[in-house]
Write a protein that binds this DNA or RNA. Structure first.
Length: 450
RNA sequence: GUCCCCUUCGUCUAGCGGUUAGGACAUCGCCCUUUCACGGCGGCAACACGGGUUCGAGUCCCGUAGGGGACGCCA
C-alpha cells in the first residue's frame, strides 16, 4: 500500500440555497479530510447552465464559511470545458461513446412502454444498430446526436466504506447519456474527469448516487484512472419518517442562521453525529468531532432529522461558550460592551444567542418594574435597607437578610416581589450576580417606580 | 412496475447464536438553588410481524408489512 494523501471533494450544484441534507455531506466530507490530514476540494458542479446561478454559488460559499467548513482548493466545472472535450474525444475514439438520435419524446415513450409491461425502463441500445446511412438521414432531417456511454455488461463491484460490498450488473443499467444534443457534457463524465484530474481518493456523497457510482466506475476504467474509494451516506429523513422534503428539505443553512439564530457548531455537531453510534454532543469546537470521525460508526439506515435537536444543542453550546469566544458574535448583535461577568451570569439562561438582548435590557434598562399593590410597602421597606456601594456578589445575600429581618416575609413572598420589581420578570439569572450588574442607581430607581 | 438498501427504548444507536438487551438525547423524579435556567444523581422505556434453522434467535434463512433510494439529453 502506498501512503497516498487523502483528497476529498464536496461537489454541489449552485442551484439554490444549501439545505440540511446537502450541508451534512459537506460537513462529513470536510471532517474526513481533517481527520485524515487530507485536502478538501470545493467543486462547483455548474454544468447545468439553466439552473446554476452565480448568486447561489456566492451564497453557498458564504454559508460554508459561516459554518467553519473551509476548503483547501476550489474548482468549478464551467472552467474546464476544454478538458472535458478532450476526454470525450478519447472515449469516442475508443468506441465507448455512441451517437443516439431519439428525441426526448421518443425516449419517454420507450420508458413508458417498458414500465407498462412491468419491465425496468432501461435504454434498449437501438442506436447501436443504426447504419451510417440511417445516421446521415437523421442528420439531414436536422437531428443532432446525443451520446451515450456504452456500459460493459459485467458485474461492477466495490467495497463501500459505509455500505460494505456493493454490486451492480451492467446489463441492468441504462447506458448513461454523457453528451447533450447541443454538445455539452453532462454531470457524470465531468465528475469522473474531475475526480481523476484532481486526484480524488475518496468520494463521499449521498446514497442517491449509488447506481451512478456503478456507471462511474466503468468510466474511471475507460479513462484509465484509479477508482476512488466510495462512501455512500444514508439520506436523512423527516421527523415523521417520510422523505426529507417540503418544509424540512428546504430548511436552508441561511434560515438556520438568520431566522433561527443558531450557532454554527449546533449544525456541525448534529450533522457530524446523526446516524452514527457516537453520541450527539454539544462541542464548542470541531476538534473532538475530527478526532472521533470514523465511517465505521455510520449506520446504513436513514436517520430522522429533528430541528428541535438543533435548538437543544444550541443552548448547550451557549452554556459552555467562553467570553472571549462569544465576543465577535456579540459585536454582530450590536452589543459591544458586554462584560465577562454579564456573559457568565446570563449564559445559562440562553437557548439562542439573540435572547441576550432581553437580559441586556434588564441590566441596562429600560425595565418596567412590576410592583403589585399589596407589595408597595414591602418594596419601600426593602429600598430603605439597600446596602451601600460598591456592590458585589455578596450584596444580595446581605440585603435579603436585612429585608427579611425588617419585614415578616420569607420564601417566595420575600424574593419574588423584589425580582419582579427589579427585572419585570418572574424568572432569570440569579439575583446575586444580577444585582451588581444592574447597579445601585437603577435598583433604587426601579424599587421606587410607581 | 423492476432492482437495491433499511426496520432494537420517543430519537440516534450498541449488539455480530446463550446479554438482567448497553449507551447518549428526550422525558420523569430527587438534590443543588430564596425564581427560571445551569449543574449533579437516579427512574421509566425497545428487538415491526409471520414462518423456519438450532438445545438455544435481537443476532442466521424465507416471507409479509412499513420506510428510503435508483431507474433523466438534472446533479
Amino acid at each position: 500500500m502506498t501512503t497516498q494523501k487523502t483528497k476529498v471533494r464536496f461537489a454541489p450544484s449552485p442551484t439554490g440555497r444549501i439545505h440540511v441534507g446537502n450541508v451534512r455531506t459537506a460537513i462529513l466530507t470536510w471532517l474526513y479530510a481533517r481527520a485524515t490530514g487530507g485536502t478538501f476540494l470545493l467543486r462547483l458542479d455548474d454544468t447545468d447552465v439553466e439552473r446554476s446561478k452565480e448568486e447561489h454559488a456566492q451564497a453557498l460559499m458564504a454559508d460554508l464559511r459561516w459554518l467553519g467548513v473551509e476548503w483547501d482548493e476550489f474548482a468549478r466545472q464551467r472552467d474546464r470545458m476544454d478538458r472535458y472535450a478532450q476526454a470525450i474525444e478519447r472515449l469516442k475514439a475508443d468506441g465507448r461513446l455512441y451517437a443516439c438520435y431519439e428525441t426526448p419524446e421518443e425516449l419517454s415513450l420507450k420508458r413508458k412502454t417498458l414500465l407498462q409491461r412491468g419491465l425496468p425502463p432501461i435504454y434498449d441500445r437501438a442506436a447501436l444498430a443504426l447504419t451510417d446511412a440511417q445516421k446521415s438521414a437523421y442528420e439531414k432531417q436536422g437531428r443532432r446526436p446525443h451520446w451515450r456511454f456504452k456500459l460493459e455488461h459485467k458485474t461492477i463491484a466495490w467495497n463501500d466504506l459505509i455500505r460494505g460490498p456493493v454490486a451492480f450488473e451492467g446489463k441492468d443499467m441504462s447506458d448513461p447519456v454523457l453528451i447533450r444534443e447541443d454538445g455539452s457534457p453532462l454531470y457524470h463524465i465531468c465528475s469522473v474527469i474531475d475526480d481523476l484530474d484532481y486526484g480524488i481518493t475518496h468520494i463521499i456523497r449521498g446514497e442517491d448516487h449509488v447506481s451512478n457510482t456503478a456507471a462511474h466506475i466503468q468510466m474511471f476504467e475507460a479513462l484509465g484512472g484509479d477508482i476512488p474509494v466510495c462512501a455512500h451516506l444514508p439520506l436523512i429523513s423527516d421527523a415523521e419518517g417520510g422523505k426529507l422534503s417540503k418544509r424540512l428539505g428546504s430548511l436552508s443553512v441561511g434560515e438556520l442562521r438568520d431566522d433561527e439564530g443558531l450557532q454554527p457548531m449546533a449544525i456541525i455537531n448534529l450533522m457530524a453525529r446523526l446516524g452514527t453510534s457516537l453520541p450527539i454532543e454539544a462541542y464548542t469546537h470541531p476538534a473532538p468531532l475530527i478526532e472521533s470521525f470514523d465511517f465505521g460508526t455510520f449506520s446504513r439506515s436513514t436517520p430522522k432529522f429533528d430541528p428541535e435537536e438543533l435548538v437543544r444543542l444550541n443552548a448547550k453550546i451557549l452554556h459552555q461558550t467562553d467570553y472571549s469566544e462569544i465576543l465577535p458574535a456579540l459585536k454582530d448583535l450590536g452589543l459591544e460592551d458586554v462584560s465577562e461577568e454579564f456573559w457568565l451570569a446570563v449564559r445559562p439562561n440562553l437557548s439562542r444567542l439573540r435572547e441576550i438582548r432581553d437580559w441586556w435590557s434588564v441590566a441596562k434598562g429600560p425595565v418596567t418594574p412590576e410592583i403589585a399593590g399589596e407589595d408597595t410597602a414591602f418594596i419601600a421597606a426593602a429600598h430603605d435597607c439597600l446596602p451601600p456601594a460598591p456592590w458585589t456578589e455578596e450584596t444580595w445575600g446581605t440585603w435579603i437578610a436585612e429585608v427579611k429581618n425588617r419585614t415578616d416575609r420569607k420564601g417566595k413572598t420575600l424574593f419574588m416581589p423584589l425580582r419582579k420589581a427589579l427585572t419585570g420578570m418572574e424568572h432569570g439569572p440569579e439575583l446575586n450576580v444580577l444585582l451588581p450588574l444592574i447597579g445601585p442607581d437603577k435598583v433604587s430607581e426601579r424599587l421606587q417606580a410607581k
